[in-house]
Design a protein around this nucleic acid. Structure first.
Lengths: 193, 193
DNA sequence: GTGGGTATTGAACGATCGTCCAGTCACTCG
DNA sequence: CGAGTGACTGGACGATCGTTCAATACCCAC
């Protein structure tokens, strides 16, 4: 038993726990995230969850940071493209099948709801959004170097509004045509003269 | 005691219970809505909540319909105005202090999140949104009678996207300037030639 | 091997959950 | 007056919650 050969290259247990939290949060909201449900979903024991994370708040906080890390990549696209194409790619990415899945959108929504309900999670969300807008503003600036930083920030904010609405609307009832028009609107805002 | 004069004109207990549900839902999400918390918030006994509503699901369902009823008024404005002014009023109303309060926006968000997490509440939300868009489309049609019904529906959908994003963004960090620009964008969409 | 730290387990705790129910109060009708 | 009905109360139930903890498995330095 000591040198068993058929060992599954099992993912880091902590990663599996956080994955489980994210999955439960996205499908059933925060009320579906119980220590026991997380343990069951991750395939570990109840005790282990509390061993790695002091309490439920710490667990959820860790999961939020885990999500944020994966989201940063959204506005850091392929550097081989020229600035304007890079911006268009980033704007179009929010509608890619990868991100426009029900799972991802539901997760987003539950994160926002969670941030409103519990102050200890609000700051995490706010800072994540700030980081996202800053990345967006940088992309706009690169594509339109003649614009002031303040103007780029403003456009990034406006784009963020439409994108948030796009995500929300996609969730309430996926309307491909409306989504395509909204993306076009984002490009107009970003690339206006 | 029979003909006591100093009787408080106490609101209907059922209304107070539903009010309590809405208040708790808006501030703490669905996980803050327990039968006991509702009873405490409404100032009634635990037993009464279960007396009026068979179970928790029925209670929440009743609260959702209660909210929906109060929301219909949003797109049914003063008929004394001319059509275009009526449309502008309705579009501007989403940014009125009355509706742009943190309480109302948080409630909206929790409703969306709840609809995603539990299928039995999804339909209630979907139909409410359908009703809202239909009202919006009717307003656009009245202001621009030359447009086809299909085009009006499309514009109503686009406005809905921006408004949802506006609400969401207002929640994440109230940015009055971005809100004003978004409302202007809604008017452009609605009143485009 | 042996010791010691780290990872992991499942049982147990009190608190709170949704639900149920016996009983009280107020009022109406015969 | 007494019987009946609907509104209302609070205690009790089993289940589940977050948290704690003693015990075990694993692994590497000695």
């Amino acid at each position: 038993m000591a040198s068993s050969a058929a060992e599954v290259p099992e993912k880091d247990r902590q990663a599996r726990i956080l994955d489980a939290v994210v999955r439960l949060l996205g499908t059933g909201g925060i009320s579906a995230v119980s220590m026991r449900a997380v343990a069951r979903e991750a395939g570990v024991s109840l005790g282990l969850v509390n061993y790695h994370y002091a309490d439920k708040t710490s667990l959820v906080r860790a999961a939020l940071h885990w999500i944020e890390q994966q989201d940063i990549a959204l506005v850091e696209p392929d550097p081989s493209l020229e600035p304007e194409a890079r911006l268009r790619t980033a704007l179009g990415r929010v509608a890619e099948p990868e991100f426009l899945t029900t799972e991802y959108l539901s997760l987003r929504l539950q994160l926002w709801a969670l941030a409103r309900a519990h102050v200890e999670f609000e700051q995490i969300n706010t800072e994540a959004q700030k980081r996202y807008r800053a990345g967006l503003s940088r992309l706009v600036r690169a594509a339109r170097p003649d614009l002031s930083k303040r103007e780029c920030d403003k456009r990034a904010a406006d784009i963020d509004v439409v994108q948030n609405g796009l995500w929300l609307t996609a969730l309430l009832g996926l309307d491909r045509a409306a989504i395509r028009r909204s993306i076009a609107r984002c490009e107009e805002i970003a690339l206006a003269p």
